[in-house]
Design a protein around this nucleic acid. Sequence first.
RNA 1: GGGGUCGUAGUUCAGUUGGUUAGAACGCCGGCCUGUCACGCCGGAGGUCGCGAGUUCGAGUCUCGUCGGCCCCGCCA
Length: 598
Amino acid sequence: MERVFGDPLGDWRRSCYCGEPRVSSVGEELILAGWAQGRRDHGGLIFVDLRDRSGIIQIVFNPEVSPAAHDKAKQIRSEDVLAVRGLLARRPPETINSQIATGEVELLAREVKLLNASQVPPFPIEDEAEASENTRLKYRYLDLRRPRSLSPLVLRYRMCKKIRDYLDGLGFIEIETPVLTKSTPEGARDYLVPSRIYPGRFYALPQSPQLFKQILMVGGLDRYFQIVRCFRDEDLRADRQPEFTQLDVEMSFVQPEDVFQVVEVMIGLLFKELKGIDLQRPFPRLSWEQAISRYGSDKPDLRFGLELRDFSSTFQGSQVRVFSEALAKGGVVKGIAVPGGSAFSRKELTDEFPGFVGRYGAKGLAWIKLTPEWQSPIAKFLTEQERSDILQISGARSGDIIFLLADEARVVHEALSNLRLHLGERLGLIPQEAYSLVWIVDFPLLEHDPEGRRYVSVHHPFTAPRDQDLNLLSQEPLKVRSKAYDLVLNGVEIGGGSIRIHQVSLQKQVLGLLGFSPEEAEERFGFFLEALSFGAPPHGGIAFGVDRLAMILSGARSIREVIAFPKSQRAVCLLTDAPSAVDPKQLKELGIKTILGE
RNA sequence: GGGGUCGUAGUUCAGUUGGUUAGAACGCCGGCCUGUCACGCCGGAGGUCGCGAGUUCGAGUCUCGUCGGCCCCGCCA
């Protein structure tokens, strides 16, 4: 049986939000509106909690106050929409509810309007109630009625507002760049948008407004920013959505220090005003080389120790063949000492941890328990010298365990950095209320494509080499370091940027190193190269992951919590069911035919 | 593309070694109740065990496939 309520709102105007009335307003007649959160029907008295985004207040329907309102209130069910006119009264002392902000007062209903009926909600609209993410996202509008679900979005809004105010104060100008734009090669897969006017041609949605913001610098904007949606058609993770938001910043006539200054004050402001935390400035800096060497990662979480140690020199020519052989092939032997780790079980050591590092391509994981007589699969191969080196390099003590991994450096670092995080989490070594910020600087400009035999940009093709490395560019390009920098917060890369190339000749040289023929460069980036040739100023900037920053500031475990309508891991919008099939007429108009089977 | 994990009432979950009619709590429906706020009391309805095959006398339970949520690898300049 469908319930339909049709009371018109009429000329009623809300007095305030439901969560606002206090004792100071007792005696006033108020009109409140919101959603019914449950009904406690005592036959005589009926209590309804009326809720809006500000909180809840108790409405009392008393037949002695208004028989009509009391009669109507019998129909009220969860999530019905009501407006109530009544007298704000102080609650009898013994009925005060200290759990809610309005707990000392209640509204004695004189008249109620049943504005709209609700179906029975699929899950209770209460913070405490757990519902699966599946259900929450399908009925996101119900989920959002819960403070716990709304508050990360509110925090995100406040964050963006503060960013805008701050940058505005520094003379930055927010400029919108196109969403329908040109596909550029490299980087992530593009989302394509077919052109109706030019059948067979496509726009691409921007992976970032990189070239536009540089062109704005050529246009003399001097200080630009934008909070902008970006799109990358790649698989999803807890911290990756196909559409995400960047805070994009670009400045002219600057060095990295100028960017750091603007950013550090901004991040400091956000922590101060949103979390009440005073961050130490300047933020520490680690060279890329140091970060990789000590943590195995270019986005190290510095909230805890377990640093990587290098045992390569110890095991040159060692009897431990997996080590010496890896070294002979140019690899490394590195490890982590875990305090108290000799308590790990055999199952953990033979299944769990080796399986874990296996995900990153490691073929095994050696371990040494520092019990009185060392317990280890490799113990019998170790010389006295090796034992003493291991103790000295690892700094480990009795009761600790040392994990050792030998392979090519890339695999060792990848596996150990993740093992480090895994152990840190598992052993509770990560202080949950701590925030560690670090700049990673001096990235290499180029690296070898893991598959092909070509160079690829570590940052992006428009990143400037360091001035003192320019002469290496033609001879030893892999040794060239760049003017790129990342900002890492608790092991999450929240921002990255660089000083850009502003001279067309250098830009062409770098594109050449990346394997673009002059013709390809012209076809793909001609418009940009031409812009550089008309007096581009030295410039640089940075882009932040707004979702990730909001996620960390709100303590969320996934960026879906700070996005109103996120996609599922299979890139589906569970609310609308997008993506979906389209009318064949639409395809025809676009000159598109699908080639999928029936 | 690959690995892991979960999928049972509206919701959150339990369900033994494969064995009678698949349970609980909350929610929902009806009745009673004037101080509740997780209201209470009495009664009731509600299930394609994600879907499809297979094994078996017999499948929620075992096998295979498939779909979906989540986590991860690959991917993400």
